[in-house]
Simulated scan of single mutants.
Amino acid sequence: MRINKFLAHCGIDSRRKCESYILASRVTVNGKVIKDLSFIVNENDIVEVDDNRVSIPNNYEYHILHKPKGYICTSRDELGRKNVIELIKSSHRLYTVGRLDKDTTGLLVLTDDGNFANNILHPRYKIERKYYAYTKDKLSVDDIIKIKKGIYLSRAEKVKADIKHMDYAKGKHKWRIILKEGKNREIRRIFLRFNIKVYNLHRYAFGGLTLKGIDKGKSKKIDYKVAKSIIR
């Protein structure tokens, strides 16, 4: 099994993210640093990440977390900020499937099944991520049409979203946004493209999963069949 796939199956992270671990010299096999992404792990090899031995678990865990504001999703943080992993009681080495920024709330999936995570993050599945965004200023009809057709956030980065104005209350506009890819701070950047700041952002659904019955800061363990409903 290739080293990146092996690490993903160990629950370290997605395959793509595991490649960065390898290239950063954080992975050793039988005491030797491995930086070759094509390296094949054999059955009796001793694999370590950051000097901690890793192995493929006999069973995987899947959790839905209702993320509160103020928590980060990165697996390593030198600033000591609160991490979403702290909110889930598990003996497994979990990580998030995709990320929400520190100030965004809502649905996160956590697992130690790297192959599952890699599959559902792949663009070919076009899995819907559904959000509510709140702003003080309102997009024009022309702006909404542009976002639906696709806009450039940078010279090489074009994005589009299904966006709808839902309500206006207490001085804020409520928007429903549906994305089919999860790019870094995409919704906030879309609004900033039109000089509008997002004050609150909440993901309420991911594929076939919702937050029904899960309070903020709480999580729910689900089985693989339910987790797989993300891919409809």
Rank of each mutant, 00 (worst) to 15 (best):
residue 84 V to R: 00
residue 62 Y to Q: 06
residue 93 R to D: 06
residue 108 L to I: 11
residue 126 K to I: 07
residue 89 K to V: 03
residue 76 R to C: 08
residue 47 V to R: 07
residue 51 D to Y: 11
residue 109 V to M: 15
residue 113 D to H: 12
residue 124 R to Q: 14
residue 81 R to P: 04
residue 49 V to N: 10
residue 110 L to V: 08
residue 112 D to N: 15
residue 106 G to K: 01
residue 108 L to C: 06
residue 54 V to A: 08
residue 61 E to F: 07
residue 118 N to Q: 14
residue 86 E to S: 15
residue 74 T to D: 09
residue 50 D to K: 00
residue 107 L to H: 06
residue 74 T to V: 14
residue 119 N to C: 10
residue 69 K to S: 13
residue 88 I to S: 03
residue 102 K to E: 00
residue 76 R to L: 13
residue 77 D to W: 08
residue 107 L to Q: 06
residue 44 N to R: 12
residue 79 L to P: 04
residue 65 L to S: 06
residue 56 I to Q: 04
residue 77 D to T: 13
residue 59 N to H: 12
residue 51 D to K: 15
residue 68 P to F: 02
residue 80 G to K: 10
residue 91 S to A: 14
residue 94 L to K: 04
residue 124 R to F: 07
residue 107 L to W: 07
residue 92 H to Q: 13
residue 102 K to V: 01
residue 110 L to T: 08
residue 40 I to Q: 15
residue 53 R to A: 07
residue 64 I to G: 02
residue 75 S to A: 13
residue 94 L to M: 06
residue 56 I to Y: 01
residue 78 E to Y: 15
residue 121 L to W: 08
residue 70 G to A: 10
residue 99 R to E: 02
residue 62 Y to N: 08
residue 109 V to K: 07
residue 72 I to N: 00
residue 121 L to R: 06
residue 83 N to S: 14
residue 66 H to S: 12
residue 91 S to K: 15
residue 51 D to R: 14
residue 57 P to M: 03
residue 96 T to K: 05
residue 60 Y to I: 11
residue 66 H to T: 06
residue 85 I to Q: 10
residue 59 N to I: 04
residue 53 R to D: 02
residue 73 C to V: 11
residue 82 K to H: 14
residue 104 T to N: 00
residue 124 R to N: 12
residue 49 V to P: 08
residue 49 V to D: 10
residue 59 N to T: 12
residue 108 L to M: 13
residue 97 V to Y: 03
residue 68 P to E: 06
residue 126 K to S: 13
residue 80 G to S: 13
residue 114 G to A: 06
residue 77 D to S: 09
residue 83 N to V: 09
residue 63 H to A: 09
residue 67 K to I: 02
residue 74 T to P: 07
residue 112 D to T: 12
residue 75 S to H: 05
residue 106 G to V: 01
residue 97 V to F: 03
residue 112 D to V: 13
residue 74 T to H: 05
residue 100 L to G: 00
residue 104 T to W: 01
residue 128 E to V: 01
residue 102 K to Y: 00
residue 78 E to C: 12
residue 79 L to Q: 12
residue 89 K to H: 12
residue 127 I to R: 10
residue 71 Y to S: 04
residue 52 N to E: 14
residue 116 F to Y: 15
residue 40 I to G: 04
residue 58 N to P: 00
residue 79 L to Y: 14
residue 77 D to K: 08
residue 127 I to H: 14
residue 117 A to G: 04
residue 116 F to G: 11
residue 62 Y to V: 08
residue 56 I to P: 07
residue 58 N to V: 01
residue 56 I to C: 11
residue 99 R to W: 04
residue 125 Y to I: 05
residue 102 K to Q: 01
residue 49 V to I: 13
residue 52 N to D: 09
residue 84 V to T: 11
residue 84 V to H: 01
residue 91 S to T: 11
residue 68 P to M: 01
residue 117 A to I: 08
residue 67 K to M: 02
residue 84 V to G: 02
residue 54 V to H: 05
residue 53 R to P: 03
residue 74 T to S: 15
residue 61 E to W: 06
residue 83 N to L: 09
residue 124 R to V: 11
residue 83 N to E: 10
residue 64 I to H: 04
residue 90 S to F: 11
residue 67 K to T: 05
residue 75 S to G: 06
residue 45 D to C: 04
residue 65 L to G: 02
residue 96 T to M: 07
